[in-house]
Computed example of a mutant assay.
Amino acid sequence: MQQNGRGVKQGDRLLKMQGKLDRGPVEFKSHIAEQEGEIMAIATCDVISVPPTQSIISAVEEMTKCGFRRLPVTDAGTRKLRGIITSGDIINFMGGGDKYKLVQVRHNGNLIAAVNESVRSIMTQQPETLASDARISDAVDMIIKKKIGGLPIIDREGVLAGIVTERDVLGVLGSERSPLHVEDVMSSSLRVTAPDCPISTVTKDMTKHRFRRLPVVSDDVLYGIVTATDIMRYLGSREVFSRMTTGNVAEVTGLPVRTLIAGELFTTSPEKNINEVAREMLSRNIGALPVIEDSRLIGLVTEFDLVRAFSGG
């Protein structure tokens, strides 16, 4: 949905800002040596997982406590991978998409009852995986082609052996010197939202467009950035329940998205080298940086953008 008037207070709109520089298309050239090492060298091997019977709320609390965006779901005895639950599944469940039916239909809008359902009811089944003998280049290819932020690693029996993320890959690729700058790799056609937009609208926008984050803009000024993890943390910290009186999901998803925005906002500039930006994102443990020029938001650079650029994809 494209909305351009200042009178629009709610909902998302498409922001196309070219800035003052000429930003034509950039052809990425592969300038990184093939990484032949095993994927397990950069993966997290001691992986926390939950069984399919675990409640949604306890899985979300685990993700919130550990700072995870995703959690593999495995059989309790065999550790065979059965699925994965991600922050995207959570925002879908909270009103973004088809998984909201669990709340709306089965529990008549009662979020407190719905979060006690088993995690198997909203997990992503048959997720994309990597074999334990895969190369780093295999992970890069899958991340770029499938636009997936994290991949479980399984052995020949389907047992969970590890997990590798965009951030793990970026830590390897980002050490390769690149001549590219932020303006070469950023997304400049952005979907944005307003501070007073309801959380329910944001979850729908994120789910529909497969976004993990939305810049929050007020009168063309960047107010903050809201991520799927912020919304998941809202549920996992149990703050959501303190705002409830009836238990109905509309009580919390009807609140303005500015309710979720807290902490320091980090930004970057279009002329910065992507090596510098990669180091900053890794050190701050953040997945994206809004790009500011002349006090205006002109783009967004994400871990995915950087992985694609460094890999020559």
Score class of each variant (00 low, 15 high):
42 I>N: 07
45 C>A: 09
55 S>P: 06
53 T>Y: 12
55 S>C: 08
56 I>Y: 15
40 M>K: 09
46 D>M: 03
50 V>H: 04
48 I>G: 00
48 I>F: 10
45 C>P: 03
41 A>S: 09
58 S>Y: 15
28 F>K: 00
58 S>N: 06
54 Q>Y: 11
54 Q>P: 02
30 S>W: 05
35 Q>R: 14
28 F>E: 00
29 K>V: 02
55 S>H: 11
57 I>E: 07
44 T>K: 04
55 S>V: 11
42 I>D: 09
34 E>S: 05
44 T>Y: 14
33 A>N: 09
39 I>E: 07
36 E>T: 07
39 I>N: 04
33 A>C: 01
30 S>E: 01
27 E>L: 02
59 A>V: 11
31 H>Y: 15
46 D>R: 12
49 S>P: 00
42 I>W: 09
35 Q>Y: 14
47 V>L: 10
52 P>L: 07
52 P>C: 13
48 I>V: 02
38 E>S: 06
54 Q>A: 04
38 E>R: 01
45 C>V: 14
49 S>Q: 11
29 K>A: 04
35 Q>A: 12
57 I>K: 03
38 E>K: 05
51 P>Y: 06
41 A>P: 03
27 E>T: 12
31 H>S: 12
45 C>Y: 12
56 I>Q: 09
32 I>E: 04
49 S>K: 00
28 F>L: 01
33 A>R: 12
44 T>N: 08
56 I>M: 09
37 G>T: 14
31 H>A: 09
42 I>A: 08
35 Q>P: 00
43 A>Y: 11
47 V>R: 09
40 M>G: 01
37 G>E: 15
59 A>N: 01
58 S>A: 08
52 P>S: 14
44 T>L: 05
31 H>W: 14
45 C>G: 08
42 I>M: 07
48 I>T: 02
38 E>N: 12
55 S>K: 10
55 S>A: 10
43 A>Q: 14
47 V>A: 05
36 E>G: 01
30 S>Q: 15
45 C>F: 13
30 S>L: 11
38 E>V: 08
51 P>L: 06
58 S>C: 13
29 K>T: 03
57 I>T: 01
41 A>F: 10
47 V>G: 12
56 I>F: 05
56 I>R: 10
51 P>H: 07
43 A>T: 15
42 I>H: 08
38 E>H: 12
35 Q>G: 07
41 A>E: 13
51 P>D: 08
35 Q>V: 15
44 T>R: 09
32 I>Y: 04
47 V>N: 11
37 G>P: 03
36 E>P: 00
36 E>N: 01
34 E>L: 05
32 I>W: 04
37 G>D: 14
42 I>K: 08
38 E>T: 14
36 E>I: 00
44 T>C: 03
46 D>F: 13
50 V>F: 06
27 E>A: 01
29 K>C: 08
28 F>Y: 02
36 E>W: 12
40 M>F: 06
58 S>G: 09
46 D>Q: 05
36 E>R: 00
53 T>W: 14
55 S>T: 15
34 E>D: 03
